[in-house]
Nucleic acid binder design. Structure first.
Lengths: 123, 123
DNA sequence: CCCATAGTTCGTAACATACGAACTCATGAA
DNA sequence: TTCATGAGTTCGTATGTTACGAACTATGGG
């Protein structure tokens, strides 16, 4: 089992981020992580998302995609995995990108957030 | 030859936009169109982009991808094609999304724009 | 009508993705 | 230490997507 690889902040690309978040399952995972930061962030917490039941091998691949795009950081916590977003780093490198995407996603889901408190604006 | 299809603004999805712009060639095309709005926007203008030479069948597919994602509008102008971005419409539906993406892309390309005048902030 | 130019579509090879089966790793019980 | 269990990963394969050359369609000019 190869050790988890995380790209350095400078190797993170816009294309990579967009591609990772262009998958509906992955945005949902990412949105969950971004909301419940630090809470129940193990992979298994997503085994039964709202409506669909996603097989765990597929979930594992999705987490890997998010990880290799630089969107999340995963570390072992005993038998589980602790997943956290790297939004602070990405905000440094690409200010406003993630908030804008998540905001648009919220609009599309019919639950537009109130104007985000600490986001959106270019750093 | 089927007539060009453009999704209605309500059928445009965030995932579709992100996927379309997650391809390096397509962002470059889109960026060009967004900059030189109305100028030389035919497909053939992109036949020899900066470094790579992209075959025209491939280019055609890229334009179709952008069109079907709702990012551009294409109409015949005689023998050519006039391509224009639909950024105003998209700005209505997903405020700040495209500016943030293009801004991030500019940063990555090493030419960060000055803080965008009318963008970024959550309407 | 014939030709040239601008794009599109088709066919196929290369690449990417989804998911079940089989695996690894950490932990806890015996 | 050994075995069992739960959490994730990797592999193999079927299915989908993408790239690009060849053949096609449309428009405009002689």
């Amino acid at each position: 089992m190869r050790p988890l690889t995380h790209p350095s902040i400078d190797d993170i690309t816009v294309e990579g981020i967009l591609h990772a978040l262009s998958d509906p399952v992955r945005v949902r995972i990412y949105a969950q992580l971004a909301c419940a930061e630090g809470a129940n962030s193990s992979c298994s917490a997503f085994l039964q998302m709202e409506d669909r039941c996603i097989p765990k091998s597929t979930l594992s691949q999705h987490f890997r995609a998010l990880r290799e795009a630089g969107l999340i950081r995963s570390e072992r916590r005993g038998v589980e995995m602790l997943n956290t977003t790297r939004c602070d780093e990405i905000q440094q490198r690409f200010p406003g990108l993630l908030p804008a995407i998540m905001h648009a996603h919220a609009i599309q889901s019919g639950k537009p957030l109130p104007p985000d408190p600490e986001d959106q604006s270019s750093d």
